[in-house]
């Protein structure tokens, strides 16, 4: 089992990770979870935008874009 947790923003493009927890106020994490970012989900970081922000991720067959700030609130275990 992987032991280190990282924020999703720290995962480089092309790599995958498993969602562990979302550290942010409940009003915000509800929507993130409803879009599929629940514990145990495998997330793949695709790329960062040309200007460095936001970041494009893939999970459960759909592609989302998150700002770095939001990606920093999602703690994952790299695969």
């Amino acid at each position: 089992m992987p032991s280190r947790y990282l924020p999703l923003a720290a995962i480089p493009p092309g790599h995958r990770a498993v969602v562990c927890e979302i550290r942010c106020p409940p009003e915000d994490h509800t929507r993130l979870m409803e879009l599929g970012l629940v514990a145990g989900t495998v997330v793949e970081v695709i790329r960062f935008a040309p200007l460095g922000d936001p970041v494009e991720i893939r999970l459960r067959g759909s592609t989302l874009s998150l700002r770095r700030h939001e990606a920093g609130l999602i703690w994952v275990a790299p695969q």
């Binding site: 915000d28 929507r31 879009l35 936001p54 874009s65």
Partner: peptide
């Protein structure tokens, strides 16, 4: 507060 700006990138 900065809104959560999650956007879908559909195929």
């Amino acid at each position: 507060p900065p809104p959560l700006l999650i956007m879908e990138l559909p195929p």
